[in-house]
Amino acid sequence: MQELITVEDVTKKYGNKTALGNANLKIEQGEFVALVGMSGSGKTTLLRMIAGLEQPTSGQIRQAGQVVDSINTNARVMFQDDRLLPWLSVRENLTFGEHSKKDITEADSLLNLVGLDEYADVYPEKLSGGQKQRVALARALMSHPKLLLLDEPLGALDALTRLNMQDLILQICRKRNFTTLLVTHDINEAVRMANRIIVVKNSMIVRQVENPYQGQDSVDAEAKQTGIVNDILHTIYEKD
């Protein structure tokens, strides 16, 4: 497997406060990695640095050998809030107003993929929260990015919609072979979707857990997944 992301001795400080300390992480092509931890543990900071939205105080992040030192346009972020542009139609939100045939065809096929083809011409205002996040997902997939960064994209959704979205994302990522990094505080979600789970605690990467049961929903696999969840929970709540 080829290595796509390398995080090397990365520290991020805001003033005196350390948001992330001495992090090391490798993500290989085609992997689905989840970052879990309590809020404020530093997991979102790491994702934002990989996206190039923030710069490390020390250390280095590389994508396919190239140092990420400004906005990383080879990665696409799906944010917690949908961040759709309310003045553009759903389709235009994907193309950013481009009218080239190629863009429109791709946008329409992605909208079809997330099951929203009939909403292509309406404004986001008319959509439900789950539908909006599906548009945001389709937007992130435009022109097939090398890396997908999902920053708690399902955090604001109700439980049922959430489960549907998890399936949809996982299905798309596997089918189209995306490399994905998911930040979430929901450990069940992480264990359901990721093949590897990274635990962040008190601004440090404390543990990495391989998950061979990714995406499986047999009774047996679910029991195994629950075991991993409990194991991770134990790590998170363990006294230092």
């Binding site: 996206a51 190039g52 939205l53 906005i71 990383n72 346009t73 696409r76 972020v77 944010f79 809030d81 961040r83 542009l85 553009l88 950013f96 107003g97 937007r139």
Partner: peptide, 21 residues
């Protein structure tokens, strides 16, 4: 500012960032 950050992160040119966001 979230929308501007999104636009930048999605690699919009300065002109596009202005005209669309």
């Amino acid at each position: 500012p979230h929308l501007i950050e999104m636009g930048k992160s999605y690699g919009l040119s300065k002109y596009k960032l202005f005209s669309k966001v």
